[in-house]
């Protein structure tokens, strides 16, 4: 792997270079840190849109339709679609593209499927880096589709500027709508499959939930939209609303804040991982001893962690 070639390729818009770089990041190739460090200064231009919601709500089909609408508005698009990795075999079936096959020969759209590879939170470990690669590659819009999300897969808010939560009619009652988690992170709600029975009721329930949270007058009011990705209705309204949210963020100086938040989050994640690798290594004798004591019940997990950390604590003078 040649970092220089990949780096140049990304900036020149070479699709193979982008694809190879993404694989390197996913495989945690030792040289990819250098690549990301160099790529970072070319990022920050793309509008990053997160699309999340339960399995089967129609996220992929909706992303397909949204992408077409954005293309009609002359924008270039990157799509990152995340599907779950088997915790038993490490394998995965990545099937989001099936709903997007009309997009695959448009040279201004780049789609990449990712397995979660053991990462929780709705995204893969490498997803934020992949978003930044597509940003540096020059995509105007990067759409990130999470795994089918339950209630707590909310990592997407750390990465996206605009978060769209996709629901469908008939998924639980008004109690579901006031629980914490997925329902709190939406900038825009879409009730997809609006041709199904119960759509208006779902819209009302979510609206009532939203009215409960106090808001200042200039704050973004979370809209609840109806769409049918299959019948291609409500798509234009959705993309209009996404654009309006982006404008809102820019005009209220919130975009810079979000970008900083995301950088800080990435930094902390990287630091956590590096500190773990640096401080604990199962091939070292002293670390094996800690695990032995843990196994025999001599120490508990808190004490074990404290034992590791105490090695690095400097005595206060």
């Amino acid at each position: 792997m040649n970092i220089e070639e990949l780096y140049k390729g990304i900036l020149e818009g070479n699709r193979r270079a982008l694809a190879k770089s993404i694989s390197a990041i996913e495989d945690q190739h030792p040289k990819c840190e250098e690549l990301m460090s160099r790529v970072y200064k070319h990022t920050g231009r793309a509008h990053i849109i997160g699309v999340t919601g339960p399995p089967g709500a129609g996220k992929s089909t909706l992303v397909d339709k949204m992408a077409k609408e954005f293309r009609d508005r002359g924008r270039t698009i990157g799509i990152v679609a995340v599907d779950p990795t088997s915790p038993f075999t490490g394998g995965a079936i990545l099937g989001d593209r099936i709903r997007m096959s009309g997009l695959s020969t448009d040279k201004h759209i780049f789609i990449r499927s990712m397995g979660t590879r053991g990462h929780l939170g709705g995204l893969a470990r490498a997803t934020s880096d992949v978003i930044r690669l597509m940003d540096a590659f020059g995509k105007d819009v990067v759409i990130v589709e999470t795994v089918g999300a339950g209630q707590s897969e909310v990592d997407i808010v750390e990465n996206a500027h605009t978060t769209v939560v996709v629901e469908m009619p008939g998924l639980g009652d008004d109690i579901q709508a006031i629980k914490a988690g997925l329902f709190e992170i939406a900038n825009i709600f879409v009730i997809n499959k609006s041709d199904m029975e119960g759509c208006d009721r779902s819209v009302r329930e979510i609206q009532i939930m939203l009215e409960m949270s106090p808001k200042s007058p200039d704050e973004w009011e979370v809209p609840v939209l109806k769409a049918s990705a299959r019948d291609n209705t409500g798509i234009k309204e959705l993309t209009d609303t996404i654009d309006r949210h982006y404008e809102y963020l820019k005009q209220n100086n919130l975009l810079e804040e979000l970008k900083y938040k995301s950088l800080k989050y990435n930094f902390q994640e990287i630091l956590k991982e590096k500190l773990m690798d640096f401080s604990f290594d199962e091939s070292r004798k002293e670390d094996q001893n800690i695990l032995k004591s843990l196994k025999s019940g001599k120490i508990d997990p808190y004490t074990a962690a404290e034992n590791v950390i105490s090695r690095f604590k400097v005595e206060k003078k």
Binding site: R15, G90, G91, S104, T105, R112
Partner: peptide
């Protein structure tokens, strides 16, 4: 999948162009 591979499935009725472009993007 059960052998630990990551499998990207395209679905039906793909043209050769679509298949090759997908293979490139997905590396």
């Amino acid at each position: 999948r059960d052998a630990g591979f990551e499998v990207i499935y395209t679905g039906l009725h793909q043209s050769a162009e679509q298949i090759v472009e997908t293979a490139i993007q997905e590396d």
